[in-house]
Design a binder for these strands. Sequence first.
DNA 1: GAGCTTGTTCGACGAAAGTCGAACAAGCGT
DNA 2: ACGCTTGTTCGACTTTCGTCGAACAAGCTC
Lengths: 104, 104
Amino acid sequence: MELHEPELRDVPVTAVLAALADDVRLGIVRTLAEGGEYACGTFEFGVSKATRSHHLKVLREAGLTRTRVAGTSRFVRLRREELDRLYPGLLDAVLAAPAPASAG
Amino acid sequence: MELHEPELRDVPVTAVLAALADDVRLGIVRTLAEGGEYACGTFEFGVSKATRSHHLKVLREAGLTRTRVAGTSRFVRLRREELDRLYPGLLDAVLAAPAPASAG
DNA sequence: GAGCTTGTTCGACGAAAGTCGAACAAGCGT
DNA sequence: ACGCTTGTTCGACTTTCGTCGAACAAGCTC
């Protein structure tokens, strides 16, 4: 299966912002920002796995994450370097903001 | 009339991001970022005045703008200092991104 | 006050987004 | 092959969002 992972510069900045403008997705990004890879099932934010899959797709198609397929699992990681290069300070500023609820 | 202008720290970061995640509103912010005050009628982005008023309300209630009433006009300005203090780098990063169309 | 300008508010409408359960696909173990 | 795990995709539903025209409010000028 082909995973759609666009170049970050091809994604409108409004799409990047929209991807971050959701509590569930921002929670995922906060977790990813700690570094390393996370299987999709890692993220439990009180939503069904269908919804979780949807949010991960939004993040991926906004150019924010990279996904590696391994068996039945998919490992997601944040494209932090590219993000910091194209939008220096954006991610840090967003992550520095207080989280609304249990984000882990 | 009371204008609702919340403290920026009381606005969830997702609301700030959502406010910026729209082409019309980002166009307004780009204009405001040049400094000074702008009457609401300044912003012509191919939308009706009802829609323009709506977007300005979204920006104001997200804590991004400050509005001064003067006669029949309302002058809007960006709350840049507060924004840069609470989310350092965010606005610069967003504004540095290429604009999608004529944003003036 | 009449008329004009500026901007907001009120439905209404269509489009988009978030959510879910159910079905499906693919890999791993035994 | 069978069952289990992991994750995606498919409707469907609800809510939110962007948009507009029309009506309204407030202030200015004559």
